[in-house]
Every structure is written in structure tokens, then in C-alpha cells.
Design a protein around this nucleic acid. Structure first.
Lengths: 174, 174
DNA sequence: ACTGACATGTAACTTGTTACATGATTCG
DNA sequence: CGAATCATGTAACAAGTTACATGTCAGT
């Protein structure tokens, strides 16, 4: 059975405790939202696949047809092996930055507006991150809060990109 | 005819002058490599599609069966409309950052190694960017070098992320 | 009764990756 | 004449998106 990134991320989440498909969907919509997108229509079939492979198993059924999954030992070793022994791939896909290459095709004011909007977006994202960071300690009883560590990457990247957009806008004026 | 990001980027490149499929493939492998990946097996069929839609047309055939394409007026207005009037989408996909969420599953030395490798990678990328930036002016006869502007975003982001990785590694030690 | 959140799934389609397949030209 | 680079394509598959489809439960 071949598992992709999504499958491994689901295993990682389930390693932190039992969850329903719905809850996993919410996880991808909140904490993981800024690093990996996934919709329920991708998640449910993937869970079925993982279960078929014995990497997770169903536990008790909940209220409205909800189904809880727990990670198995095989699943746990699969995800740790993935983390420890495989290289992460990166295929860069930033439509926003790609568009910048062709901003010369627009009149200057339009290009400037694009950059202004970029700055606004980065600052808005940053504000959101900072608000969350303010009430999220770097570690708790279980040790390091790795989600907080990842969040910090977002904070620093958005800061840098907001400043980049302002700089780029400035270049255009001269 | 529906055109996706790839199609618009091809139009954008062709707006800068005639090119063969091979050359476009190289463009995606060099300048655009860090913002949008595309392989020749995706590019050639897409070119055929764009030609079918009248957005580009074939010009003279070159040496070894190579085929040059030029953008048409329709193509040009399509790409400017895309730039000016449509919102860029971003579906974040950073496997590297996603993995950070689950680093708690590894022994500390392993997690530290992951972060050290992250820092190394960001610094290596940064070094490459800086080398290129050193010989690429911010503008030339045609005005602003937008590829240079985009490159600056890469420089700033990689700098921030290299420092983030060092910081994260530091957190682990305490 | 209705609304909103909870909850799970499938189908059709688009996009992207990997592997296969072929041939021309240049340089040493 | 062999290797590297140039050059174009197809096929099979994997991953991701959008729309469709259905049903439960809690609160008002």
C-alpha cells in the first residue's frame, strides 16, 4: 500500500489521540490550514485506505454516525519511519509570487496595487498568527509545542514577506 | 476553454518573446523553478491546448523538430486579464513545515537533526539566490526586472526561515 | 418547524508525476 | 562512434477540487 503526504499527516494527527473524520477535517482547517490543505472528500477515502492497510482501526461509534479512529502500532511505526527516514519533497507552488514575474505587463498603478494587496494580505495573516501565538506557550506538560514552533516559522515568513512587498512597492515608485 | 495557472504562466513567458516548448521547459526549471514547478510532460500538452484555443500560434520550425510558439493578441489580453482581474489562489503545501507538527514523535536528537538540516537547506538556497542577485540589476532598459523583485522575496523568506530553524533548534536544547 | 453545526460519503473532473518512447544534432 | 544535450510527445497513475447527496442532533 502506498501512502502519500496526506496519509502520513492523518497518521500523525491520530498518533496524538483518537479522532473522527470530522475532527481530522477540522484539524486540516485550523492548525494545519497554513501548511497543508485537505478537504473532507479527500480525507474520508484516505481514512478508509489507511484502515484497509491496518494502519488505523475503528473504535467506538459516536452520536450521529460519527466514527472514531485510533492509530495502530503499524501505523505508528509507519509515521515515525516517514519522519525519520524519508526526505520531504518540495514542489513550490506560489501563484502569488509567480504572478510577480509578469507584473511588467500591467500599467504601473495596477502593479503597485497588486503589491499593496500582497502587503495587506501578509500583514493580515501575520496578525492572525500573532494573536494565536500570544496565547500559545512554547511548551506544556507534554514538552515542546511543535505546532507553536511551526507557527513561529509562519510568523517570521509573513513578516519578511510583508516587508518585501513594501520594499517592492517602493522600488516601483523610483 | 479553461486555462489554469500553468497555461497563464506559459502565456506570460511567451508574452516576453517567442519560445519553443523546450525553452519554456527550461524556464520552469530555472527562473520559475522556485515558484511553480512544471515538467515537459505537462507543458507540451498544455501548449497544444493553448494553440487550439488560439491563444498562441506556431511560428517557424527550428532545427531538430523544434517548434516555436508566439503569443496572439487574444493570448495577451487573456494573460493581462488574469493578472489584473482575478484573485490568485493559495493552497499551502509545505511538507517540510507540516512535518514539524509531528517532530515530537521522534527522539530529541532526531528532531534536532531535522531542524539542523532545515537550516542547512535554507542557507544553501539563500546562497544560491544571493549569487544570482549579485549579477542581476533591479532594472534594465525595459524597466523593472520583475524576476529580480520576485527573487528578493525568496531571499527574504529564506533568510527568515534559516533563522527560524536555528531558533527552533535552540528551543530544543533548553 | 427551522436553522446551524455535526457527520460521512461518492462522482466527475482537473492537475500533476513518473515512466515510457523516440529521434536529431553537436562535440570530443 | 559515443555521450550529452536538444527536442517532443504519450500513457498510466496519483493527488486534489468541486459538486452532489444524505442524514443526525441541539438549540431556538
Amino acid at each position: 500500500m502506498k501512502i502519500g503526504v496526506l496519509g502520513h499527516l492523518l497518521l500523525g494527527l491520530l498518533a496524538g489521540g483518537e479522532r473522527t473524520g470530522w475532527e481530522l477535517t477540522r484539524d486540516f482547517d485550523t492548525s494545519l490550514a497554513n501548511v497543508w490543505a485537505a478537504s473532507h472528500s479527500q480525507i474520508y477515502p484516505e481514512l478508509a485506505k489507511l484502515e484497509g492497510g491496518g494502519l488505523i482501526r475503528k473504535t467506538e461509534a459516536g452520536p450521529r454516525g460519527s466514527q472514531r479512529y485510533a492509530i495502530t502500532e503499524t501505523g505508528r511505526s509507519t509515521v515515525t519511519a516517514w519522519l525519520a527516514d524519508t526526505e520531504p519533497a518540495d514542489s513550490p507552488r506560489s501563484e502569488r509570487l509567480a504572478r510577480v514575474f509578469f507584473l511588467g505587463m500591467l500599467p504601473k498603478e495596477r502593479a503597485a496595487a497588486y503589491l499593496a494587496e500582497e502587503e495587506r494580505r501578509h500583514r493580515a495573516k501575520l496578525a492572525g498568527y500573532l494573536a494565536f501565538a500570544a496565547e500559545c506557550p512554547l511548551d506544556d506538560d507534554n514538552g515542546i509545542r511543535w505546532d507553536r514552533i511551526a507557527l513561529e516559522a509562519g510568523i517570521r515568513a509573513e513578516t519578511a514577506l510583508a516587508e518585501w512587498a513594501a520594499w517592492a512597492h517602493e522600488q516601483l515608485r523610483r
